[in-house]
Simulated scan of single mutants.
Amino acid sequence: MSPNSLPWLLLVPLFLHLAEITAKVPAIIIFGDSSVDTGNNNYIPTIARSNFKPYGRDFIGGQPTGRFCNGRLATDFISEAFGLPPTVPAYLDPTYGIKDFAAGVCFASAGSGYDNATSDVLSVIPLWKELEYFKEFCGKLKAYQGEAKAQQTLRESLYIISLGTNDFLENYYTVPGGRGSQYTVEEYQDFLIGIAEGFLREIYQSGARKVDVTGILPMGCLPLERVTSPTMGACNELYNKVAWNFNSKLQCLIKKLNGELHGVTIVYSDVYQLFLDVLQKPLTYGFEDAASGCCATGIFEMGYMCNKKSPFTCQDANKFVFWDAFHPTERMNHIVADQMMNTTLAIFK
């Protein structure tokens, strides 16, 4: 061996160490509702489930997983885009373990919201419990990777939070004598923002430094809301305004926390404007139907009402923005993921 090669050999451990330190995103860690739930609700007693066909008919292997979609979710595509596994496992799925979760884990629960009362409506996992599961996961990760490596993984991972729609549509505007009678809508928005702030500070304390908070889509344009809209068939503009205002408050919170929490980068993903653009110009994006879902009549069905017995379910979900009356198709989820990767999440590449 040439003496001249020795300095390079001595530098190899340094290079490897630097590669570890500058690792971009070793895992995707997800909190939220049905927009990002990859199957946790399969393992709790709730009617908010989708682990049956035709859900999952376009998923890998054509199997329903508990995703409220015909295929993959936006977070699955984001995981793949970061060079991680193409699907993110649900934390409660017993077929996965800490080795899998070390590269991506989902704590989300369909039907959940920022408000604990929202999760009570369909008996799903509240946000405080998602946080509890996360802390349990942190302990398992430290036992698996060792303290130092686990701390690095938690610090470098990308945290995605997608919540809020259910707080309004399943709770505030729906439950008699509930939040709608306790707060004005502006007060309720502030109440939710306070919960969001507390949650973001909690995960920061556990090591989170790269965080994406996804806003609410124009919820008044969901097929289910169109059919019950005061202007039958058109978007419920009141609900859209509420979503827009809530998103504005989220952005103010993010700006505040970025200024107060040392070393954190919290970004806001604007799905509102993207969905609005797609819904107004569906043909531009290759969609033929932006007003109804593919499953069953596509007007009011989701969950157990969206099942394989319906003769009306479309043949090609790629032509639809929505899969059921509440949730996007895999193709729309892919569009959402692409935009997020090219805009807000680009900073983490």
Rank of each mutant, 00 (worst) to 15 (best):
P3E: 12
W8K: 10
L9H: 06
L11M: 13
F15N: 09
L18G: 13
L18M: 14
A19N: 11
E20K: 11
E20H: 11
I21D: 10
K24F: 06
K24E: 14
F31D: 00
F31G: 03
V36P: 01
I47F: 14
S50K: 04
K53L: 13
K53M: 10
K53H: 10
G56F: 01
F59W: 11
I60N: 11
Q63M: 11
P64R: 04
P64F: 04
R67I: 01
F68M: 12
N70I: 07
G71A: 08
A74L: 12
F77N: 02
S79H: 03
A81W: 02
G83N: 09
G83W: 08
G83S: 12
P85L: 04
P86V: 04
L92E: 05
P94W: 11
Y96Q: 09
K99R: 14
G104L: 02
V105P: 01
A108L: 09
A110T: 05
S112Y: 05
D115W: 04
D115Q: 06
S119Y: 08
V121N: 03
V124H: 05
K135W: 08
E136R: 12
F137A: 07
L141P: 00
Y144T: 10
E147T: 13
K149E: 15
Q152I: 10
L154A: 01
S157R: 03
L158R: 06
Y159P: 00
I161S: 09
F168N: 01
L169I: 15
Y172S: 06
Y172Q: 02
Y173N: 11
V175D: 09
G177P: 09
E186I: 05
Y188H: 07
Y188P: 00
Q189V: 13
D190C: 10
F191K: 11
L192P: 00
L192A: 08
I195R: 03
I195W: 07
A196G: 07
A196C: 14
E197Q: 15
E202V: 06
Q205W: 06
A208K: 00
K210A: 00
L217A: 14
P218A: 11
P218E: 09
C221W: 00
P223S: 03
R226K: 14
V227L: 09
P230R: 10
M232E: 14
C235E: 02
C235K: 01
E237R: 12
L238E: 12
K241T: 15
A243G: 09
N245E: 15
F246W: 02
L250E: 06
K256S: 15
E260S: 15
G263M: 11
G263V: 06
V264T: 13
T265A: 14
I266K: 00
D270C: 07
L274T: 00
F275L: 15
L276W: 12
L276T: 14
L276D: 13
D277H: 12
Q280N: 15
K281S: 15
L283A: 15
Y285Q: 04
G286P: 03
D289R: 13
S292Y: 13
G293T: 02
G298N: 05
M302F: 15
M305P: 00
C306V: 08
N307G: 07
F312D: 13
F312M: 14
T313A: 07
C314N: 01
A317D: 09
A317I: 03
N318T: 13
K319T: 05
F320V: 02
F322Q: 01
A325G: 07
A325K: 00
F326N: 03
N333T: 03
I335E: 03
D338P: 04
N342A: 14
I347M: 10
F348D: 00
